[in-house]
Design a protein around this nucleic acid. Structure first.
Length: 464
DNA sequence: GCATGATCATGC
DNA sequence: GCATGATCATGC
C-alpha cells in the first residue's frame, strides 16, 4: 500500500496514525498483510511499520521517523471491569549498550535521540484473537512533561552510574522510578553481554517505561479524547453569595494582569506554538484550570462568546471584531425578533484584553459584557439598512477604475456600534443574492458579515 | 492614521 | 471546503 502521509511532517504522521483508531491491522492494511509471515511477540509493531506506514522495520539508532525524530511504538492494553484501559506490560525502548553508553550525556544519548518523542499505538490484547484482529484503541504522540523528564533523566543517570561502577550485572528494575532497565532476550544465558568496567558478564537490558508510567500515559491520552468539556467550577461549594461565577473567573485572571503571554505560558509550564490559531484560547483555558483542548462547560452552557482582543496603546482594538457571515437570502427572510443579528448580540461575551506596550503584549484585564437594550436598538439600524439594501439589490454604489466596488452597506461612521464589511476568502467567495444586483447585474456577492466597531469596544466595553 | 474593501492562514 | 480570527492594501 502507498504511504498516505508526509514523512517530513510530524502532524501528517500523527494524523495518519490516528486514523488507526477503531480499526484492526487486517482492516487498516488490506489484503497484503494477509499473506505476510508473522511470528513472535513483537510482531504487531513490525507489521504496523511495514504494512501501514510502509517502511522496513529497522534497529538503527535514529527514531523510526528520523526526519522528524518520532519513534513509533505499539503496545498492548488490557481492559478493567469498569471499562478503563491499563497497560498490559512495560514499554520496551532501545537496548542499553553497556560498552558505549558510559561515554554519553543524557542530552545526546542514544536513548534520548530515539525516544524523546513517541508515537504510541495501543491495541487491545485478546488471546482469543489473531493479532491482525486486535482492536486499536488509543493513538497519540507523547512528549515527557518537564517534571517527568527530570525524573527520567535521574533514572538514566542512575543506570549509567552502575555501569560506570562495573555493576551492570547488578542492574535491576527497582533501581529507578519511571525509566527502568528491563531484561531483554529469550533466555538469560543467551543474552549475556560484556560490560566495560568488570569482567563479569551482564544480562542484556533495554530501557523501558515502567508499566505504571505507561498507565499514566494511557490515562492522559484517554482523558484527552473524552474530556471535550471541562468545568471551571468543580465543586458546588465554590460558589457562594459573596462570590459569583463571574467573580471567580475574573479572580483567576487577576494574578496575570500586566503579564506577557509568554510569562503566563511559563507559569503553567507550557510550551505552546504562539503562531497557532488557538494560542490565546489555550492560555485562557489554562488560566481557568482546564486542559488545552477542552471546551469550557460553563461558557458553552451559557452561550458565552470568548473574544480575545489586542488593544493598541491608545486603548483602541487593533482590529474590528468580526462575526459569522450572513447569507443574503436568509437575511431578508428574517424578522428583527428572530434575527441572527439580535441573538448574536444578546449573548454574553467574555473579553480577554491584551495590550501592546511597544512590541510586547500584556494581559490587561478580562471582562464579562453584554449589550444593553438601548445599544441593541441602536445597532438595529445597521441590520435594518443592510436588509433593505439586499432586498432592493442595491449593494454596489460604484466600481472604481481599479475594480474595487464601493457599497451602500452601513459604514463605520454610520453607526456607533456596528458596520458591514466583507469577510471572505476573496472577492469570488460569494453567497447567492435574492434579487439581481442593480449596478453589476450579478446574482451573487462576496460574503459579508457584521463587525463590531473597534471604537465601540474601546468606549463601551474596555474603558467603562 | 484611519476607513473600507480584500485577502490570508489555520484548523476542523 | 469552509468558518474564523487575523491581516493586508489602497485611498483619502
Amino acid at each position: 500500500m502507498s504511504k498516505n502521509y508526509d514523512k517530513d511532517s510530524v502532524n501528517s504522521i500523527i494524523g495518519y496514525a490516528k486514523e488507526l483508531k477503531g480499526q484492526t491491522l487486517r482492516i487498516a492494511c488490506g489484503k497484503e498483510i494477509e499473506t505476510a509471515n508473522f511470528k513472535g511477540k513483537g510482531n504487531f509493531g513490525q507489521l504496523l511499520e511495514k504494512f501501514y506506514f510502509d517502511y522496513e522495520p529497522n534497529s538503527d539508532a535514529n527514531a523510526d521517523f528520523k526526519e522528524v525524530g518520532l519513534e513509533l511504538k505499539a503496545s498492548p492494553l488490557k481492559i478493567l471491569k469498569n471499562g478503563e484501559f491499563r497497560s498490559k506490560e512495560r514499554l520496551v525502548l532501545n537496548i542499553i549498550n553497556y560498552l558505549k553508553v558510559h561515554n554519553e550525556e543524557f542530552e545526546n544519548s542514544t536513548f534520548w535521540k530515539k525516544n524523546a518523542h513517541l508515537l504510541l499505538v495501543f491495541y487491545l490484547h485478546d488471546k482469543e484473537k489473531h493479532l491482525l484482529d486486535y482492536l486499536i484503541k488509543l493513538v497519540d504522540d507523547w512528549k515527557y512533561p518537564a517534571e517527568d523528564l527530570e525524573i527520567i533523566k535521574q533514572d538514566w543517570e542512575k543506570i549509567n552510574q552502575k555501569i560506570k561502577e562495573g555493576k551492570a550485572h547488578e542492574l535491576s528494575e527497582g533501581d529507578t522510578f519511571y525509566l527502568g532497565a528491563c531484561t531483554k532476550g529469550s533466555t538469560a544465558a543467551e543474552s549475556l553481554r560484556d560490560q566495560p568496567f568488570n569482567k563479569e558478564k551482564a544480562k542484556q537490558r533495554a530501557y523501558s517505561l515502567k508499566q505504571g508510567y505507561v498507565n499514566h500515559i494511557i490515562a492522559n491520552i484517554a482523558r484527552e479524547e473524552q474530556a471535550v468539556y471541562g468545568k471551571i467550577i468543580k465543586l458546588p461549594k465554590e460558589l457562594t453569595k459573596k462570590k459569583t461565577l463571574e467573580e471567580i473567573i475574573i479572580d483567576k485572571f487577576k494574578p496575570f494582569y500586566g503579564k506577557k503571554p509568554q510569562e503566563i505560558e511559563q507559569h503553567f509550564g507550557l510550551e505552546l506554538n504562539n503562531r497557532s490559531k488557538s494560542y490565546y484560547a489555550n492560555l485562557t483555558n489554562k488560566v481557568l484550570g482546564l486542559e488545552l483542548n477542552q471546551k469550557i462547560e460553563e461558557f458553552e452552557k451559557a452561550d458565552i462568546q470568548v473574544k480575545t482582543i489586542r488593544l493598541k496603546e491608545n486603548n483602541l482594538p487593533k482590529e474590528d471584531i468580526s462575526f459569522p457571515t450572513f447569507k443574503y437570502t436568509e437575511l431578508i427572510e428574517e424578522d428583527w425578533e428572530n434575527s441572527d443579528f439580535k441573538s448574536m448580540f444578546e449573548r454574553k461575551f467574555f473579553f480577554v484584553f491584551y495590550q501592546f506596550q511597544g512590541k510586547d503584549l500584556i494581559l490587561r484585564k478580562v471582562k464579562f459584557w453584554n449589550m444593553s437594550n438601548t445599544d441593541l436598538e441602536e445597532a438595529k439600524a445597521v441590520w435594518d439598512k443592510t436588509k433593505d439594501i439586499v432586498n432592493r439589490g442595491n449593494i454596489v454604489l460604484e466600481v472604481t477604475e481599479t475594480g474595487k466596488r464601493k457599497t451602500n452597506f452601513p459604514k463605520k461612521k454610520d453607526n456607533r456600534i456596528s458596520h458591514v464589511r466583507p469577510h471572505a476568502q476573496n472577492a469570488k467567495d460569494t453567497y447567492n443574492l435574492p434579487t439581481t444586483e442593480k449596478f453589476t447585474g450579478e446574482n451573487e456577492y462576496t460574503k459579508h458579515c457584521f463587525w463590531l466597531n473597534a471604537s465601540y469596544v474601546k468606549d463601551e466595553i474596555y474603558e467603562k
